[in-house]
Structures are given as structure tokens and as C-alpha cells.
Design a protein around this nucleic acid. Sequence first.
DNA 1: CGTTATGTTCGATG
DNA 2: GCATCGAACATAAC
Length: 273
Amino acid sequence: MPELPDVELFRRIFEEHGLGRPVAGVEVADPRILEDVEPHRFIAELTGDRFRATRRHGKNLFAARAKGGHLHMHFGMTGALEWFADEPPPYTRVLWRFREPPHLAYVNVRMLGGVGLVDDIEAFLAERRIGPDALDPALDFEAFSAALGSGRRPVKAALVDQGVVAGIGNVYADEILFQAGLRPEVPVSALDEDWRRRLFAAMREVLAEAVRRGAAAERFTERLPETWLTRVRGPGAACPRCGTPLATVKMSARTGYYCPRCQVDPRREEAAG
DNA sequence: CGTTATGTTCGATG
DNA sequence: GCATCGAACATAAC
């Protein structure tokens, strides 16, 4: 689930329930989720601390600590941040209790992802070669196009590369390409400036609209516009625009869906309207 | 039982 | 050396 719009929702949950409140207790239900920190140190560091601000960069969520440094969370494919009053949700791996409810739970079925402590966010992002956040206002078209590069890899592979732009995963990459009218396997080298502008605009619109609608959690697709691929995305589905059965393409063990009629290959066809 | 799942990393390949 | 590909990781559901 967690791509940029989902993590943005988690950020808002943390912002609403986790800021300014003394941390009364920290529980690590499964130490495997911790990044480069022992459970006892993680617990000792955060107990009694307070969080003063949140920041999201791509799929990464940070919470600034009053004592200095930041809490870091990545949600992998199945992670989420939830608040709870009584019982922690199933698959809670780490939780933070305050003096009274609501408390916060980092939930993650598959354990892909992690929770840790980082001193310097910029250094953290640089080490991991994470590019600019896809919704960063400072990311203009020129920078986006330069980051896309001119290699031969498929445009979808470039979109989900966190080093190009941070925050896009399999589902939103499919949606962005659908809205741009572009096929996923087209090499970036085949994209002229018009196509790049179309792609950039689609990226901003799709992500911003998904954030606006608070699309996350189960059945999140129901909150998205009816004209979106994500509403129907799956085996046997038809294009929400023209009814053509969707085609699939495998890329790095991930299934992509696209409309073979609405989405074109610029090398072979005229741009669709 | 095999397949698939919204991510990232690391080693292999071209 | 660089760009790109594919397996591995952990767990549940169909």
C-alpha cells in the first residue's frame, strides 16, 4: 500500500496524534523491524522524549525528536501507521504509548520496511541516493526531465526509481502512465519534451489528487476518481475510459496494467488526445 | 501447493 | 564503469 499518498496520510496521523506529547512507553514487538539500533537503546532513547514535527520524503516518514535527531519509518509493502485506544492493531511491530490514548502503532505484516533513529535527514537521503520528493514544489520540469535521463530503460522503471523521484511505486506509476497516455515499456530515450511535460504534469496531478482525497488503507481505491486506472486495476479489468481490456506487463516481479488503446508508444503512434 | 502482493537491496548480467 | 535486470527478503491470502 504505502506509496507517497499513503505515507502522507500516515504523516498526518502522526502529526495529529503524536506531536508534543511525552512518550510514556515504547514497545518493540519484533526487533527485526529495527534499523541499526538495539531494542533497548531504541526504547531508552525515545522514552520520555517528545516529537515536535513530522516530515515526509518520498515513502519515508520522519518525526523530529525534542532531544534531537529523528525517528524514521519506512513501510515496505504492507506497513502502516495507526492510532489506537485500547488494543494495538494486529501485526503491530513497534508502538508508542503516551500518558493517555490515543497511542501510535507501526504495523507491518511482511516486515519489509523498518523503524530507526537518524541524526541527519539530508545525510540519510543522500546515502541512500534518494531523489527529490515527487511533490516537492522546488522540483520543476527541468529538474524532473534531467532526473529521468535519457537511458534505454522503460519509463516505468525510471518512475519507480527512488533516485529519480521519490514516492512512486507500482500502483501510482501505472496510474501516472495511464493519465499521461504513455505505455510503461517505452524507453525514456524515446520521450521528447512534449511527452516529458505530459508525464511531469500527470505525476503531479495524480499524486496531488490522491493526497487530497486521503487515499490510503484498505479500499483506498474507492476514494479515487472513477476515471482512474487504479479504481479497476487488476486481472480481467477493462479500461475505465474506453472499455478495452487492460493489458499487463511484468517488470521486476511486479505486474503492471495499462490500456493498450489509450496508452501509446510515441515511437509508433501519434499522440492520443 | 503454487501464485501473487502497493518495496528495497544487492549481486549478476549486458 | 555504468545501466539494467532479477532474486531474495517475510508473511498472508486466494
